[in-house]
Design a protein around this nucleic acid. Structure first.
Lengths: 252, 252
DNA sequence: CGGGATCCCAAGCGATACTG
DNA sequence: CAGTATCGCTTGGGATCCCG
């Protein structure tokens, strides 16, 4: 048990305490997926293709000991966040927003999962802008998965649709029928531009590359872009050698 | 290139990109300290007593390659955050707030540094409450170090005072003379209660244990507690055994 | 068949020593 | 003071195997 002494960061600090609990590799990605709802072991594994199974098992055990994750009693292999674990949402959202500026292009072998998509939408959500718009449902199809985002007032509820596991009935927004529905087919490459682009650009240039409107008008797409937007923080500047941040692709 | 294959998380996601850049051990603690201002190698080393020097060297190199950190040209061994790196403040603040709920007591061998203190104050800052209070300076003495927090309207500027390195003249708040100054001597143990306690408690019970007013009245202490407060998110509940998971100190 | 546990190897981390 | 070099140990990665 003297091992534990080596693990601590030796700091009496909230940041250090947080990192001791969820700072290990893969831990916050597991939390990200569980923020979308309860998941089974195999769901987590398939959503995180590069994680070795023993590491996933270890992390889940550690996260349970930290009080971040608990097992779902009724479901074999089911895991969910505790209230304490759900408190990590601001952390994950902040990471998502910051990392967005360094997203670059889809690299080979990288996956885009429904849970990652859901978190991106949560991080991009503008409650202030949404509050002035009528209740709307946005359905996004990316590759082989789909997510539905229901926006009512300042509330947002994102649920993965399709092969997602453990269907959760809880909708955190009031049960109102949306005034309108926008349905988009999005290429993984166009997904970044969809959330990054400036509002108003649709009216001028139409949908970004890789985005097709399946249902709804371009006015609804504009509404989407007012509701969901991630402001780039600052370019990863000052890099001496090449890094893979290919944000130069979008020629202005 | 093959190196990257092993390191990458294989996810096209902002969270994954962020973790690939600042998810390594110690990285976010280095960022935390640099958020307080430029620091020299030795400052970072002494603020992070448990970090091996080669790891500090490696992390600084990696953070420079990621565009998070740059060297201060005029100072030997000086480092500072880039604009991109300063964009991590919401991440660090969110971690600080969450980790605060799991802070526990000061464990043996743990240090409380001025930079950690400054980040705690930043995370605890309530701009809404501060906006309705007159400009105030708060000086905290903890162990052998001191920090000064100047609050003007919704603005906050925290500077470590004393043996801190690279004195930075920049004050982000307007240069107003504070209407009042509160000076506190705080034990490391009392520091947590000072930021966690509910407002109003001072009037009833006086200062928390381990907090002594050196200058200013208890009304100013109440002002402090309105201005700086970290709401606990939720207890690290649901743990099977004691909540001492992660720390070796089994002693209560 | 899904949910993990066990191996082995490589890479990362930690402590110390050493150099410009 | 600001790192680099080296070494043993711990951890993560990948494949396999076991158990219900």
């Amino acid at each position: 048990m003297a091992i534990r002494a080596g693990r601590g960061l030796g700091q009496y600090s909230g940041v250090a305490r947080a990192l001791e609990r969820v700072g290990e590799r893969w831990a916050l990605l597991i939390v990200r997926d569980l923020l979308a709802g309860p998941r089974r072991y195999s769901d987590l594994k398939s959503g995180l293709p590069r994680i070795p199974t023993n590491i996933l098992s270890d992390r889940l055990k550690e996260l349970q000991e930290s009080g971040v994750v608990r097992r779902v009693p009724t479901v074999r292999g089911g895991y969910e966040l505790t209230a304490f674990g759900r408190g990590l949402e601001p952390v994950v959202v902040a990471l998502e927003r910051w990392g967005w500026s360094a997203l670059g292009d889809l690299a080979e072998g990288e996956v885009l999962t429904a849970d990652a998509l859901a978190m991106a939408l949560r991080a991009a959500f503008r409650a202030d802008a949404a509050a002035e718009l009528p209740p709307t449902e946005y359905v996004l199809h990316v590759a082989d998965m789909s997510v539905s985002a229901l926006v009512v007032g300042r509330g947002l509820d994102v649920v993965p649709v399709g092969p997602g596991a453990l269907p959760q009935p809880r909708r955190s927004v009031p049960d109102v029928a949306p005034e309108a529905v926008l349905e988009l087919a999005v290429e993984p490459s166009g997904f970044r531009d969809l959330l990054t682009g400036l509002p108003g650009a649709v009216a001028v240039k139409g949908p970004p590359h890789g985005v097709t409107i399946l249902d709804g008008g371009s006015a609804l797409l504009e509404r989407f872009r007012l509701t969901f937007r991630i402001e780039p923080v600052a370019p990863p500047a000052g890099v001496t050698d090449a890094d893979a941040t290919g944000d130069a692709a979008s020629v202005a």
